[in-house]
């Protein structure tokens, strides 16, 4: 790591090129996938996974509250769309903002602790939010969830896009995802990001240099919450339904698993993890014999074990290892 805290100076094109390459890969991916709905879902689920990676890989915080923050975004957008018929972009912004507000509160209480205790506190908060959603039947629908969300035409003043076809929606999600990816990449290379990573290595040193680790971690936590909110709002649009299960701790666990599967120390891990996880879960569900016996979960479990035993850096780390091995030869 460089000692200077300046943002790297790069040309506009150099900044944009990885995103363009990603777009060039992701757009055709849509046509390759066996299910057309899956494409958008992979991207949407990669968003909270990205938040998880930002917090774990770059800040050292193990956040088990991602599921509830994701659900807050989904419920906010879902309720606004289903009951108040607001503009789609407005609903997304509201979802992001709401998750941000919740994560400010959550962060305030949790950030004082570190390591496993922090993880468990976020888990407790996650269940608190789940419980509120479950019990507040008049507002959130309780166990019924939110029905009647409609993904329709997005009016943007000059022109409008119909989001109903899966491909259009996929492109819409892809644009947002790439913007987010750019932002996060920029963030971790900024002075702020360098401080975070410095604290991950040694909190004591960061404190000695004069940074207040709690404030920095809190801000990182809130950014993570905002990202989850974006994912949630898009998910409400994607499924046209929001259920309480999104806020349950098992959803948080799922994001964590996706991150670990992909690789926690690199941002692309989110996309790879989410892609492989969703693809596998779906693929295994296709065989009646497997679906009937619930054997998809069995294979998934075996894959987790294999990843931990042999591909510690997740799939990304594994591929990198293989690539480096061949390059050396």
């Amino acid at each position: 790591m460089k000692s200077e805290l300046n943002a790297p100076q790069r040309s506009f094109m150099a900044e944009l090129s990885p995103v363009l390459i990603m777009a060039a890969i992701l757009v055709p991916t849509y046509f390759v996938l066996p299910s057309k709905m899956m494409a958008a879902e992979i991207l949407i689920m990669a968003i909270p996974t990205l938040s998880f990676i930002l917090l774990l890989g770059y800040t050292g915080l193990l956040n088990f509250g991602t599921g509830s923050l994701f659900a807050v975004g989904a419920y906010t957008a879902g309720i606004l769309l289903a009951r108040h018929n607001v503009h789609i972009l407005l609903a997304i912004i509201a979802g992001v903002a709401m998750s941000g507000i919740i994560s400010i509160i959550m962060g305030y209480f949790c950030i004082k602790r570190v390591g496993l205790i922090f993880a468990l506190l976020t888990l407790a908060f996650n269940q608190l939010i789940w419980f509120i959603i479950w019990q507040w039947k008049s507002f959130t629908g309780g166990p019924d969830g939110i029905w009647g969300i409609k993904r329709e035409i997005l009016e943007l003043g000059i022109f409008s896009i119909n989001l109903k076809p899966t491909f259009n929606f996929y492109i819409f999600v892809l644009i947002l995802f790439l913007l987010l990816f750019l932002f996060v990449r920029r963030l971790i290379e900024s002075p702020f990001g360098k401080v975070l990573m410095g604290m991950r290595e040694s909190e004591l040193r960061a404190t000695a240099i004069g940074y207040n680790p709690e404030t920095y971690k809190w801000i990182a936590f809130i950014i993570g919450g905002l990202i989850c909110g974006l994912g949630g709002a898009l998910f409400a649009l994607h499924q046209e339904y929001v259920g309480e299960h999104l806020a349950h701790w098992s959803t948080s666990g799922e994001f964590a698993i996706k991150a670990l599967l992909g690789g926690t120390f690199v941002l692309h891990g989110a996309l790879i993890g989410s892609g492989v996880f969703i693809f596998l879960a779906d693929f295994l569900n296709r065989f009646p014999v497997l679906a009937k016996a619930g054997a998809g979960l069995l294979v998934l479990g075996a894959i987790f074990i294999l990843v931990v035993m042999f591909f510690r850096g997740g799939i990304y780390g594994g591929v990198e290892k293989v690539y480096n091995f061949f390059r050396k030869k």
């Binding site: 990603m22 066996p34 692309h268």
Partner: peptide
């Protein structure tokens, strides 16, 4: 570095999708 970081895992991923996608449908 961009090559190693994105393109290669990306293409491998796509290949996996493609193969299994063809197999499954």
């Amino acid at each position: 570095s961009i090559m190693t970081k994105i393109v290669i895992p990306g293409f491998i991923l796509m290949l996996v999708f493609l193969c299994t996608g063809l197999l499954s449908t």
